[in-house]
Each structure stands twice: as structure tokens, then as C-alpha cells.
Design a protein around this nucleic acid. Structure first.
Lengths: 248, 248
DNA sequence: GGGGTGCCATGATGCAGGTCAAGGCACCCC
DNA sequence: GGGGTGCCTTGACCTGCATCATGGCACCCC
């Protein structure tokens, strides 16, 4: 994804790698915390060397001990089951928490891979849990993060079971656009960090279908796509298309 | 769903309607709690009059204040979006928690309806949250419940995006069987509390497809179905079929 | 009994999107 | 330059499942 604030972030990383000064604190875990709480949270967070594109944050089946907050870049979660093909279950953008679905079984249920150069904050879950005892706001934020992920999953199920290929792609772009907007980036112009194959896998379509529909959208003046560079030309129409009911 | 313990449960309801004596305590929230904690949890739980088939536990969009633990019976969660058709996102069985996906937005994201006579325990979330401050085991159990639901959702996404109609139905029956087994009921013989329409909606199929495939399964000696009465004849084969990779 | 209603089954037909195959373009390394 | 590799696009064809339509059965109420 594009990083208009790259320079600022580099500066911040070098000099104040703390929640207090992180540009994401209003979206991320510290959201509801007061000064003191943020400091305490900060104390248990470990920085990690940036991941390069294709680097693995953790592997499916390995022991769960940390959740990760995305600081910059993006990742995908991939689950392999049985003799089967992979299923891409999620993309993660800055401020989102990775690994919450591992708490229950104490093992990560999928492999998480960086889609580009990516930095994350590593948070040992047992310490986070203990800290959430003393900080009701942190606890609430954790509950909310998980609850939001549940809601998003339900939306995804709806997409997969009731929407046509066109609507899936429209939803995907509208969703990305919205996520960028909330993070302060342009909702109209961005660079995809994921390949067509990733998108099609995530949306439950064939790569060819994604390609064709993107072409069609282009023809209809909805978007302008060139490789991974995306310009959304008619967001309202895209949103309308995404919300229209499936033909089922 | 069938209730071999109905008499015992009625007895329990009348005389000791408490977590301490609930037959589900080893599956439900009190799972990891000690005596003392169970009592405290018990103190904030409200009983509710049993719901009859078709009764609504709460409506989509109404204010969130409680989560509910299913005590007996079963429910479905239905989400209506836009101008559209309903999407059935979940079935809930005894010991499962309903409403966890409402925390984030403070409104229930779907309507929850009883599929048969159903009793639930009503738990005000703010009090549960506060109690989870003092009881780390309760907190852990809450985190685990949500995490498990996240994992189940991912499995559902996989089902919806990669599995054929046959595999979806095989997964559905194998899953139900497993859930009954864990609750101490027969994994081979049970009564569906949901209609074919519910099943097809949940699995992202047409009712007709469900009907046809059930017929085929019957012919193959996998199950014997008569109305809502189900006998699983070859669970291993069903499981194998469910796990086979989609043809995509 | 007759007719209404809800739920399920089955048959005929069509289409959205998967599959297979081939080609284009950017980039890299020898 | 040439050839390899990764990623995307486009075209031709085919199939799994939705859709439409009809009928059966159980149950209820008049």
C-alpha cells in the first residue's frame, strides 16, 4: 500500500518507537487509553525487524504466544487444510491486530505472510491479558477488536454465499477504499499490495474472472486499473453495485 | 434438537437454576472457574422465560447490552442487509454464547430467533466485563469463546468459497454430529431443528439443491433422512467427503 | 370433506463463472 | 540480445448449481 507518511514514520520509528507517538494510536489498541495506560502497554510491546515481502510472520500450527499490531505495510493470512488448496482468509492493514483467532487453540490457525515491506508490533498475549486486568479500556478495546472481526467475518460470509462475482469485486474495492480513508490515505487512489491470485482466492473466484471483471469495470468507467495501481472513478456506483442484492 | 435430559433439566431449572449445577458448566462460560468464581458469575446471570419456536431473542439493530448463553434448544442468527434477502450466519446450540459480535458497534448485527422451545441465560455484558477483571479464568474463557468463533467463521468461509454443494452438506452434517457428541448426545441420530430453507440459506445453496443431495446421500447409504429426523450411517465417509478438496 | 398453508421433492432448462489454453508484458540475469 | 520467470489478460468451451415449474404430503381450520 502507498505510504505518504513514509518519511515521518521512519523518523518516528528511529526516535520514538512508542505507542504515545505512533500515528496509528487512535485506530489501534491504545485507542481508549489514557496517558498512563499507553505507557504500560508500551512497556510490553516488542518491536520487530521489518518483514520483507514474502516473509512469514508465523506459520500455521506453530505455538501461539503473541498477537501483532500492524504498523505499516500489509499481510495476508492463509490456511491450508487437509490435502487441499490454500484459502486466503484475511488481509491485514496498519492498526489491525493479527493472531486473535489463535487464542482458543493455542496455535495459529493460519500462516501470515507479508505482502510488502511490513513492520509490526509484537505483543505477548499473556502480558496483554494481565494488563487488561488493570486497564478496563484496554480490555474493552480487545473485546471490540475481536467483535469487529466477527462482524467482518459475517459480512464476508454474506459476500461468499450471496454475491455475484461483480459484486464481490465491487465490495472488495469499496472496502479497501474505506479502509484507506479511515487511515488517512486517499480512498480513490492506491496501490494493491496483493496479486490477482490473492484477490481471487480471497473472494472465492478464479483469477481469470477477476481479470475479466476488472476489465469490464474499466470499460464502465468505474475504476482505472493498471497493474496494481488503482484509481476509483465512481465510488458511489461501486458501492451501489456492491450492496445490490445477489440474484439467488 | 433432541433432549434426552429434558426431565432432569426441568428439575434442575426449578430447583437449582444456577451455573453450579448446570449440566453445561463444563462447556460454557464457567468452564475454567473455581467454586467462588462460578458463584459470582451466577449472581449476574438472569434467567429468562423459555422462548417458543419462532420467538425473537433480539432484533438486528437493537441496542446491545447482554450476551446470552444457550441452555437448551437452538437458535439461528439472521442478518438482513440493504434491500436484500436474509443471510443466515449462525446456528447456536446449548452452551454457546450469542451476541458476542455486537460488542463493537453496541448494536446487534443480526436478529436471533429460536428454532424450537429454547431457554437462555441472560448476561449483562458490562457486568460480565467487570467481573472478568477479577476473574482471569473468566476473562480467558471469554477471549477463547470469541477466538473460537473467529476460527469457526474462517472454516465457514472456506466452505463457502471452495467446497461443492455435496461437500457443504457433508460438512454440515459432520459438524452437527460432532457438536452433539461433545454435548453428550448421540452423534449418529438426531432431529434437525432447522428447516431445509434454513440449511440452504446457511450453506449458500438453493433449497432444491439441498433436497436433491440429501436424496443422493441417502441412495449412497451415507445417511437416512426422514423429514427432520437424521440417522448418520457412515460418518467416516461423510467426513472424508467433507474434507476432500473442492474442484476449483 | 374440502380447501388453505407450509414444507419438501423432483424434473427441465439456462447461465455465471470455472477450466483449459495461449499470448502479452515487465523484469532479471547470463 | 536472448531466454527465463512471474504475473496478468483474453478467448473458447463446459459444468454445477440456480431457477422455474409442478406435484406430493402433513397438518390445520372452517
Amino acid at each position: 500500500m502507498r505510504h505518504p507518511q513514509t518519511t515521518a514514520e521512519r523518523h518516528e520509528l528511529a526516535y520514538h518507537p512508542h505507542c504515545q507517538t505512533c500515528s496509528l494510536s487512535s485506530l489501534c489498541l491504545p485507542l481508549a487509553l489514557k496517558e498512563r495506560g499507553t505507557e504500560q502497554l508500551d512497556a510490553i510491546i516488542r518491536r520487530r525487524a521489518p518483514l520483507k515481502k514474502g516473509d512469514i510472520l508465523f506459520r500455521q500450527g506453530s505455538d501461539f504466544d503473541c498477537v501483532y499490531a500492524v504498523r505499516s505495510g500489509s499481510l495476508k493470512q492463509v490456511t491450508t487444510e487437509g490435502s487441499g488448496e490454500d484459502q486466503l482468509t484475511n488481509f491485514y492493514l496498519p492498526s489491525e491486530l493479527v493472531g486473535l483467532d489463535a487464542i482458543d487453540e493455542d496455535r495459529y490457525p493460519g500462516t501470515v505472510v507479508a505482502l510488502e515491506t511490513t513492520t509490526v508490533c509484537e505483543i505477548p498475549f499473556d502480558r496483554l491479558d494481565r494488563l487488561s486486568e488493570a486497564l478496563p479500556e484496554l480490555r474493552g478495546q480487545l473485546y471490540r477488536s475481536m467483535s469487529k472481526e466477527l462482524r467482518d467475518d459475517r459480512r464476508m460470509m454474506r459476500l461468499l454465499s450471496r454475491k455475484t462475482a461483480d459484486q464481490r469485486l465491487a465490495s472488495f474495492f469499496a472496502g479497501l477504499s474505506e479502509r484507506f480513508r479511515r487511515r488517512g490515505y486517499s480512498p480513490y487512489s492506491f496501490r494493491l499490495s496483493m496479486s490477482r491470485a490473492d484477490i481471487s482466492n480471497y473472494l472465492g473466484l478464479a483469477v481469470e474472472t477477476v481479470s475479466r471483471i476488472l476489465g469490464r469495470f474499466q470499460g464502465q468507467g468505474l475504476v482505472a486499473v493498471s497493474g496494481r495501481e488503482v484509481n476509483i472513478l465512481d465510488l458511489p456506483a461501486l458501492t451501489r453495485l456492491a450492496e445490490e442484492e445477489g440474484v439467488h
